[in-house]
């Protein structure tokens, strides 16, 4: 359940940002989370409440944009979508897939005032 410490990191980062960019309230947070990022989206949602309690983010709406896993087949060279790090190429059925994206774990933007 490292999702809670990830969410605490999120709050810390945004608190620092609030000082630089001079905002006092966060209404909406958009996260990008890749399917291969090694986190459970539901656990992130669950951790958001306790992690933001008593902060400028308390009560904010959390929107999670899920990103697919993508890679290049080492056998046939096709760009393909994968569900796991070890899927064989869905096109040729043989090659290992070198992952090119799907490990995103970042704050995209915030609505603040």
């Amino acid at each position: 359940m490292h999702e809670l410490s990830l969410m605490e990191g999120l709050v810390q980062g945004i608190q620092e940002e609030a000082l630089h960019q001079k905002f006092t309230r966060v209404h909406h947070v958009r996260l990008e989370v890749g399917r291969l990022a090694g986190v459970e989206v539901e656990a992130l949602r669950f951790a958001f409440g306790p992690a933001t309690e008593g902060t400028l983010m308390e009560g904010a709406h959390l929107e999670i944009l899920e990103r697919p896993g993508q890679g290049v087949c080492q056998a046939c060279g096709q760009e393909v979508e994968v569900e796991t790090r070890f899927d064989l190429c869905p096109v040729c059925g043989e090659g290992f897939v070198a992952i090119t994206s799907g490990t995103e774990l970042r704050v995209k933007d915030l609505d603040v005032d």
Binding site: L6, G13, T24, L105, R106, K108, L110, D111, V112, D113
Partner: peptide, 18 residues
Amino acid sequence: PARPGRRRISLEQSLLAK
């Protein structure tokens, strides 16, 4: 006190940045 004027801030910051 909350100031009026909601705005969007683009961050593109990793949750693991710290």
